[in-house]
Design a binder for these strands. Structure first.
Lengths: 152, 152
DNA sequence: TAAAAATCTGTATTGAGTACAGAAAAATGC
DNA sequence: GCATTTTTCTGTACTCAATACAGATTTTTA
């Protein structure tokens, strides 16, 4: 397994304590928000500025080191699982997020896009499943946070 | 075909000029933003307040009259094609958005989610394809708006 | 060790959307 | 047609996420 330092260097990024810590924290806690990262990295290496967090996650996701997920209704989340084309399931009620491995091969839903308009090139399929997590099914839907009414 | 008035009434919404105009405008121009709607409805019926636009699109999407799409990097968009489970293709460069009909049946990518964690219930699969539109392929990627660097 | 890159501090701004409250207008039920 | 209810309008304020900038400082790299 490639070391975090090598990972940074191979993407033309100099190795700093902040970047290593961000990487480590997101690896440990996938689906972290920028704020989560700020808090955890602070605990890890003493201090980091919010700006640096944003700078870091931005340059990381631009370069493909992090994957950014931005489901509607919540702030952006980041994860280190990239390239394996897994998907996400978000609970409409409590907004919790879990990974879902896609069973239809490596580039799953791209095959579903045979009728792409002429001239377009697709390089990624982003899939978000919406539903309800176990604990939110048993109780009444709370004060209607992200949920849609009128759906079965 | 059901009339817009009936559509509103059947969802327990009283019929108002604003709501009819929002419906009409979004039908005519799918993938409209709240701002687009505000402008077009203003042209249509003289005036509408921004708050009413937000109120309207929110109650509409809560009730399933409108579908809300919220791709990262741009503001929420609304469309009237609901329930047919089509998907969207967004250009990384110019952020334009087109519909894509899914070829794998009515609830396409739900079948790809066989390994759902126990206890979860899924009711919708939201799929966004990312790529490049014809005109953005021929030219150099512009000043790096939403695009990811370092991707083939 | 020098040059370049990254970070920090601090402040400010943008953009999207929400909140609220009172007044006015319109739609609905009878 | 009238009363009640719902919706809309006006206007202002606020939140939250993210970005921008600028100068000083620190750290990395060559």
């Amino acid at each position: 397994m490639i070391s975090p330092e090598e990972l940074l260097r191979s993407h033309n990024l100099s190795v700093t304590a902040q970047r290593l810590a961000v990487l480590k924290v997101v690896q440990r806690e996938p689906h972290s928000t920028a704020d989560d990262i700020y808090n955890n990295v602070s605990a890890e290496i003493g201090t980091i500025s919010r700006q640096s967090v944003f700078d870091t996650v931005n340059s990381f996701s631009e370069r493909g080191l992090l994957r950014r997920i931005q489901p509607m209704g919540s702030s952006a989340r980041y994860e280190t699982r990239i390239g394996d084309n897994h998907h996400h399931l978000i609970c409409r009620s409590c907004a919790c997020l879990v990974d879902i491995d896609c069973v239809t091969g490596m580039r799953p839903c791209l095959t579903a896009a045979d009728n792409v308009p002429h001239g377009y090139v697709i390089d990624e399929a982003e899939v978000i499943f919406w539903g309800y997590c176990p604990s939110c099914q048993t109780q009444q839907p709370p004060t209607e946070s992200i949920s849609k009414k009128g759906k079965k």
